[in-house]
């Protein structure tokens, strides 16, 4: 190989390397600069949506508290079980309640971590695994694995439970639909918000429309289980109430007339409408089953919680 060609190759390699390094530096710097802001904004948005589906606007109630329960799938050598991380005491402590698959209490572990530490996914996973294994070793048993599954929030007002907030993701018509949902203390649906979706604009994307989502609000758990999607057109007065054109006492009477109506499908997007209904139904059914088990177990074991 002659000298000129070699020089050329070296020059190309050096230039490419320098370009890559510079590009990497620019991207890395942006990532570091924006990462924190992104997380802060996401948290703020999360909170805004949360209060919105609870029915509060900008003036949030003072004496409201939110308690997060994290659910883990635990795996021992021979069987799997569920672990609920529940805040107790003044919020500086938690317990992991281990419940077997049939809903019977197995044992509980102390977890010394405050809610701020628990909010960080990595730290929480480590804390939970450490607490579980410490407990297991004390009993001379083998190790136990824990895998994070999901979480839900219990809202209290003046110490009394008044709502549950859950996150969910289910298949839509195109890809996934991600929602946040609020249930009241009797498991009636207060409302839900579509956080992410990829449905067709003008068709399935209309699932984000307030009138469509408002149809679900106020349905009791018993009603939700039996809800269907109907393709008949929405009656005009009901539509006016759902889209907020009529308010006050008149709206109340119309609302009562339509309290037992099925969910009216979006025009041209019956499959998207049905996906939302079935996804919500499955989410609520699973949550209610779990919450009833957790409540029963906490009561049986006389564990004082914050909710």
């Amino acid at each position: 190989m002659n000298r000129a060609a070699l020089k050329d190759i070296i020059s190309i390699v050096v230039r490419l390397t320098v370009t890559c390094l510079l590009a990497g530096a620019v991207m890395g710097a942006t990532f570091v600069l924006t990462h924190e802001a992104k997380e802060r904004n996401e948290q703020a948005r999360d909170e805004r949506v949360l209060y919105a589906i609870l029915g509060y606007g900008d003036n949030r109630p003072q004496n409201m508290a939110l308690h997060t329960v994290y659910r883990y799938v635990l795996a021992r050598e021979d069987a799997s079980s569920i672990g609920y991380v529940v805040p107790v005491g003044d919020g500086a402590q938690s317990v992991v309640m281990e419940v077997d698959l049939d809903g019977h209490f197995v044992q509980h572990f102390e977890l010394l971590a405050d809610s701020a530490r628990l909010r960080n996914d990595g730290e929480r996973d480590r804390a939970v695994i450490a607490a579980l294994n410490a407990g297991m070793h004390a009993q001379g048993e083998s190790t136990i694995q824990a895998r994070y599954a999901d979480k839900f929030i219990i809202a209290t007002q003046n110490g009394r439970r008044n709502a549950y907030i859950l996150d969910g993701k289910y298949p839509g018509f195109k890809t996934f639909i991600r929602v946040k949902m609020a249930l009241d203390e009797k498991f009636s649906l207060m409302g839900f918000e579509v956080l992410e979706h990829e449905e067709d604009p003008g068709l399935g994307a209309e699932i984000t429309q307030p009138w469509f989502r408002n149809q679900f609000a106020g349905k009791s758990y018993e009603q939700i289980k039996k809800l269907q999607v109907t393709r008949s057109p929405v009656p005009d007065p009901w539509m006016d109430v759902l889209s907020g054109k009529i308010t006050g006492s008149e709206a109340q009477t119309i609302r009562q007339q339509h309290a037992d109506d099925d969910i009216y499908a979006l025009t041209g997007a019956t499959i998207s409408s049905r996906s939302v209904l079935q996804g919500n139904q499955a989410m609520i059914r699973k949550f209610v089953t779990r919450m009833e088990i957790l409540d029963r177990v906490l009561k049986e074991q006389h564990i004082e919680t914050l909710f």
Binding site: M27, T30, F31, T34, H35, A37, K38, N41, E42, R45
Partner: peptide, 8 residues
Amino acid sequence: LVLAAVFP
């Protein structure tokens, strides 16, 4: 990255 952070 900037849009994801500032205008989610």
